[in-house]
Design a protein around this nucleic acid. Structure first.
Lengths: 340, 340
DNA sequence: AAGTAAAATTGGCGCGCGTAAAAAATTAGA
DNA sequence: TCTAATTTTTTACGCGCGCCAATTTTACTT
């Protein structure tokens, strides 16, 4: 490694003995140059370790290689995992992913969109904040830049990838009815479309079986799901006012909170004979197999969501711009553990 | 909102009636222009919603406003939370944060460093992967760009912010000894300096009390901590070979796994009279208050880590480049819950 | 050996904006 | 009202690289 600093591609092309346009060509696609020149460049690269300036690259490219990713909460393991997978797919395809989190705030989401708009993106993958999202703004964004929405749909017409709540909730409702007392439904705050859809899916599934649905409503509207499940649990358990002893939670994080409350009240959870109640969730949160007892839930197929989102996006990019696509609804998988 | 598209600052300056250099000045600092011209610009901004191209900005600026953040695992809630806080501080200070995760792989960490090097960063905040990190490369990086290391130290001499493991482990060892049987120590995989330091801190704290330390070793070397704690727990509990009935885990994620194993074995955990064992952790993981029972642990002060890291970084940036600084070691806080 | 296709070079424009210097305009102070 | 200080405009260069057209070199055919 020489100590001489290479300041730009010009200088690098000088020391490598290859012309600048060819060097540029190499960095865009190493296989696009002849083997011998590629070797010479890579040999020089070992001596001088030069990297093209990212900003200059992206300023000039016709089609940039940047994918924007926006999620409501990067702190939520579900989104963290999906982002990780999407990022991976993008990198494999030679793209660079810019990850932005709304941190639950509509203003930050809007900022994120503005920021991305100023970056000449090749495309974007977005999980909307939900109710509080600036829908019009997001639709506008999606009309300018190839965009795939995931997790929670925006409205209709946009490219969407997500879990089929009617299917997945149906799965677990059926399972719970088959194996014991029919479940009541502890809903999640109405932060997005999923919240509403899962509730409706529950109601539909119960009615299909000729049973009366029992929804336990929540008043909160924030993303502190564990806390909400916990408080709700304590409140209801203190005077046992759950409609039934089987509780289906709208997601695993709610269920984790409820489990904590039940534990605190000394209730035995599970499907065994000596148990006081059954608790089930939805999502297959990374920690749901380590709860006490391990949580019965429906797994969202993280990898599939990431795969389908990215491939849908690449399709759009190749077809040259935004366009309508049929929504992709993935089927969840029942994960039977001990809590229900 | 007019439908006319503004393609660049030139066009925007035309429609706003302000010269381009002044508009440029405005975007760098809105307060740097006269009130009346600021109003005119902002008025035009409402009609045409133009944003300067991010790449062009950063290509030309003398000192860019970009901060790089690199963490071993964005999926780990601890890092996710810290990243969120650091990001927030940066944005408040008018900087933009680029977040990159190594996803546990040394190669990705090296890639991340290379990427950041090509971005003329103002500075970087990095939590190293640990043992597997390319130390030399990272030191090299830190010598070129103002860099603060957090969570796990690299070597010595670098600007570092982290928890004082000797203090925090001391706190909880003392507490556990004071309130019951002295703890054994379920170590974490030796992925970084923290792992070693916490073990040594435990040994030191025990010896200070004239007690013999009992370390339960782990063979694994990956980041799947819950799984490791769980498997280790099952293995040891199946023939009760924990040295004592009080187990201090090197971190909360290990403890969460151990709690799951103990639950599976039907053991009652807690400090109450009818309990079979006590389990404690370290970090105050976001879910540790929702475990069964809630986990006694030592809280790392997330906000303080973020604050100190960012302010140390800004100091370095203002002082013009990398330089040696005394490491900042923060004191943890004992969080007494029910598990120990 | 000549002929042809592929690859590399030369030379040069342009991206969108930062920034500097000098000139012009505006404001504030006396 | 005049001068000085502040702000804005004009003009122009440069950042580092993508990309293009024309030309020259290289590699492969027959």
């Amino acid at each position: 490694m020489e100590d001489q600093k290479i300041r730009n591609m010009e200088e690098f092309s000088a020391v490598s003995g290859i012309s600048r346009p060819t060097v540029s060509k190499y960095f865009n696609d190493p296989t696009s140059v002849r083997r011998s020149t590629r070797d010479r460049i890579e040999h020089a690269l070992k001596q001088y370790d030069f990297r093209p300036n990212l900003f200059a690259i992206n300023q000039n490219r016709k089609s940039t290689k940047n994918i924007g990713i926006v999620v409501p909460h990067i702190v939520d393991p579900f989104f963290a995992e999906i982002v990780r997978l999407i990022e991976q797919r993008c990198i494999e395809a030679g793209y660079w992913a810019i990850v932005l989190s709304s941190h639950g705030e509509a203003e930050l989401e809007a900022n994120a969109l503005d920021l991305l708009r100023s970056m000449k993106l090749a495309g974007a993958v977005i999980a909307p904040l939900g109710e509080r999202s600036d829908r019009a703004r997001m639709m506008q964004f999606a009309s300018e830049i190839p965009t795939v929405i995931f997790d929670s749909p925006l409205g209709s017409g946009e490219a969407f990838v997500g879990t089929d709540n009617f299917h997945s909730i149906g799965l677990i409702v059926d399972y719970l009815c088959r194996t014991g007392e029919p479940p009541c439904f502890l809903e999640m705050p109405a932060v997005n479309e999923n919240a509403l859809e899962r509730k409706n899916a529950y109601i539909g599934a119960m009615e299909r079986q000729g049973l009366t649905p029992e929804v336990v409503p929540v008043a909160e509207s924030d993303w502190g799901f564990e806390q909400i499940g916990y408080e709700q649990g304590l409140r209801l358990l203190s005077r046992w006012s759950f409609p039934t002893s089987t509780v289906l939670c709208a997601n695993d994080r709610i269920a984790i909170g409820l489990l904590a409350a039940a534990y605190e009240r000394g209730l035995r959870i599970g499907r065994g004979p000596g148990s006081a109640m059954r608790i089930a969730g939805h999502d297959d949160h990374p920690l749901s197999r380590f709860t006490c007892p391990p949580l019965t839930t429906v797994a969202q197929d993280h990898a599939a969501i990431a795969d389908k989102s990215v491939s849908a996006l690449f399709d759009m990019i190749e077809d040259g711009g935004p366009q309508d696509r049929a929504p992709v609804k993935l089927e969840g998988k029942l994960i039977m553990r001990l809590s229900a």
